[in-house]
Amino acid sequence: MAAAPQRDAGAPWRERILAILGGLFVVAGAPLLPHFFGVGTPAVLAGQFVGLTAILWGLNRFFFRRLPLSGFVLVLFSIAVFGVLFLLGYFTTEIVLPFVGEFASRFIGLVHLADLGFYLFATMTIAGAAGTAFSRNIIYSAWSLLFAFMGVAGLYIFLGADFPAVAQVLIYVGGILVLILFAIMLTKQIGGDPHLTNAHLALPAGGVLALATVAILSYMAVMAPWKVVAEPQYVSSVQSLGIAFLTEYLLPFEVASVVLLAALIGSVVIARKEIKETTDSGL
């Protein structure tokens, strides 16, 4: 499989890509050989080795420009890579997978499968919020906020609130987060400022405050005798929300539109100052 050196230097892209694809095909298809032909494990391993060498030869053009792998070096390198991958695969299939499978089967017996979705979204939300709170760089905080918002939208779906979930994605992720990113970029505080945190109330004090708040609120949430309904319903709430907004909550709905208009005009007036100054100085 070791190709001639003079071909390596100027082999065109198509040959390399074909070699990569063919190698991938061989590596993936080799384990099927014993099912169709009467060959054993050594033949499978040999086939995978050949495929891996082909992949490496194909990658030559893209990754190893400085040190072209050809001839003997290519074979040596592919043997090394094959050995590492073999050990890794052996370790994964023989040791890790049975352990994980056993653990998962025991775990799923305890937790309903549908609840795993809740735990996924809850983890996403809290991890995003923690990233927002404790990240040193303000732009990482903003990106963590994205995960927090998306996780909250997922929680809304678990609570049967489809319209608030969509509104969350549209308004928070599509609107407020973009506004925040714009504000970060316009105020030139992306990085480099080491004094991001408050000197009087630093992160340790903040962590203690967070733990105390979570402890007290969680104790109350678990211990309080909530009058929970027997069978929570999962129905689409869009139509009923529209009817509620135009009948029972008509006045707050109209007031909210006035508030939005006032906020729009107010923010334009407040943020307009710079343009006026620059045009004044420009004139």
């Binding site: 939300t125 809290i126 919020a129 927002t132 709170a133 927090a148 405050l209 708040t213 609120l217």
Partner: peptide
């Protein structure tokens, strides 16, 4: 989850 969000926001 709401309590954790609130606490982290306050921090």
């Amino acid at each position: 989850v709401g309590a954790a969000l609130f606490a982290l926001g306050m921090v």
